[in-house]
Simulated scan of single mutants.
Amino acid sequence: MTKEPPRIVTHSPHTARKEDAALWAVILIRIRDHRDEAAFATLFEHYAPRIKAFLMRAGADPTEAEECAQETLTTAWVKAVQFDPSRASVATWLFTIARNKRIDRLRKQRRPEPEDLPWGPEPDPDQESLLGLQQETEQLGAAMAALPDKQRELVEKAYFGDMTHSEIAQATGLPLGTIKSRLRLALDRLRHAMQTRDTK
């Protein structure tokens, strides 16, 4: 029996830079391989409003766009096993699902299909970009695994769990200074690991 996706309470979406594609891939892989609900919450919070906006630009009304965006993320949870970072980025994969959901709805309503839906915020990556993303994803995953347990746990809470430093302090009982210090050391280690890869 397929596990139902966790209930998500949305907040203001946090921003992510284009160069964070490898991190989003790691987040989706955590959903794919570990059914990680905190990772799913992070994915949902970031992409749901973007998918809704994309569908509204394609002609959907706000209610339909929101419903379709939720269906897209639910599908991503159920079919996360199909995600392959060597074939597409997280954004490309999600916006492809959204596009198909939109077309399915138009067919059911027997309305004319749009000749072309405007694409999402990222162009379809070429093979070289996909290979680079796959390598970066693997490298980041290895670098995360190599972190000391105390540092890795804080990185997961701060970035995969989308918790603030204050929320982490409340959950762990650690002083804010300790949390900030450990996160800084962890990010330095991750940055060094990725830079080492680039110089090889």
Rank of each mutant, 00 (worst) to 15 (best):
M1N: 06
P6E: 03
I8V: 15
S12R: 02
S12A: 12
L23N: 04
V26A: 06
I29M: 12
I29E: 12
R30Q: 05
H34L: 11
D36I: 04
D36A: 05
A41R: 11
A41Q: 09
H46E: 02
A48M: 05
P49H: 04
I51M: 04
K52G: 10
A53N: 07
D61S: 09
D61K: 12
P62T: 09
E64I: 07
E67A: 11
C68K: 06
W77C: 09
K79M: 08
D84C: 05
V90M: 01
A91H: 02
W93I: 06
L94M: 06
F95Y: 13
F95A: 03
T96M: 11
N100H: 12
K101L: 09
R102W: 11
R102Y: 00
Q109F: 00
E115K: 13
D116M: 15
W119K: 15
D126G: 13
S129Q: 15
L130W: 02
G132N: 13
Q135C: 11
E136I: 03
E136A: 15
E138L: 15
L140Q: 04
G141Q: 13
A145G: 01
L147S: 02
D149S: 08
D149W: 00
R152I: 01
V155W: 02
G161S: 01
G161Y: 01
T178G: 05
I179D: 04
K180A: 14
S181M: 13
R182G: 10
R184K: 14
A186L: 08
L187K: 12
